[in-house]
Design a protein around this nucleic acid. Sequence first.
DNA 1: TGTACATCAGTGAACGCGCGTTCACTGATGTAC
DNA 2: TGTACATCAGTGAACGCGCGTTCACTGATGTAC
Lengths: 208, 208
Amino acid sequence: MSHTVGIRQAQKQKTRQSLMEAALVLLEDQSLSSLGLREVTRAVGVAPTAFYRHFRDTADLGVALVDEALGSLHAVIRATLAATGDSAERIDSTVGLVARHVRAYPAHVRFIARERHGGVEPVRAAIGEQLRLFADEVAAWLATQPDSAGWSEDDLRMLAHVYVDHMVMTASAFLEAEPYGDERVEAAASLARRQLRLVSLGRRHWLD
Amino acid sequence: MSHTVGIRQAQKQKTRQSLMEAALVLLEDQSLSSLGLREVTRAVGVAPTAFYRHFRDTADLGVALVDEALGSLHAVIRATLAATGDSAERIDSTVGLVARHVRAYPAHVRFIARERHGGVEPVRAAIGEQLRLFADEVAAWLATQPDSAGWSEDDLRMLAHVYVDHMVMTASAFLEAEPYGDERVEAAASLARRQLRLVSLGRRHWLD
DNA sequence: TGTACATCAGTGAACGCGCGTTCACTGATGTAC
DNA sequence: TGTACATCAGTGAACGCGCGTTCACTGATGTAC
């Protein structure tokens, strides 16, 4: 038979996941830079010292959260790029995908928005790197599109950058709108769509 | 003679200012949510209890910092709007003004970028409100421009929003580029200019 | 399959430390006459 | 101008508390034969 994970390793993974989930909840109203290791273990129901079996410190846990949070965003970006239809349809579906992602993983989104410029250097670096990878991915896709003919590589990267930044900002705007009800969410969506339309128009006339 | 400030009040203001400046320095590598009152008073050289003569807690100090930081940005926005010349010239001067502001007040800019989505609600709220006021100011100015003829009020607000967000993001990008040298700063400036050009083109064709 | 030993995730006591907050105080500045 | 009293920014001792980290431990799981 094949080598299975083993009870011990599976249990360890489960505890690790619990620590990350508890941290994410605690981070909804504080920054990583003030998150305490004892807080996290208390929330999970393990001894404080158990923490060290999984992470060196809370910054290390933060980096693990970045990977988890932005790993799931990769899928959203791929789906966005794969959308078909004319410009308006693509914009609608992009904004819809972001809205759905925020509803599905609000704590992840809040964490990324908060720590992107937060006080913990390794976490900031990890987020920056991941967003750069997203921009690369978008830029590579843009290069395959017919309407990118004549664009310099640098300009394509600039445009990709705009799209990625816009996605993060839109996600954060949805998060802020959520507690005030559906109409505020719809307003955020409308704003995001019109902003994308503005970019789309600029893009169409870039080489005029 | 006129009523002068009084020695006592002047001294109090001086201590208050020292507390705010010390906090700003400490906040360069941590978030407000982990800033301690004793840290701040220690840096200034006063007793911990002196803090309470000026602020209820560190969140209260944070709100005071928001007012100080964004008060000085008001001037930058006015200068940006007052710039003359064609689109390219206006873009150059806007990016130049932002770059100069970041060089002059790096700690203020870092603080705003960090706490805009940070873990301290009253501070987040104060920043959000100020940025909304900036957007209002920009929207009102846009409404006076000939090329805004035919734009809905909502679309003007959307465009103002784009400009304000772009300014904050550009400031933050300058801050990140600074430690890596002038060429990185110039790259950030070039990126910001091309992004503004994209918006400018979109704006010109909005009503097509 | 059964046995004997190794591994290692999680424990619990202990530590020294800095935290926020309270309180009664001091002495320079302000004010009334 | 001089005096007597009021104000109040900053002090310093004291408090209880939760923090991160160390250490030797336990007992279930894994491994070798």
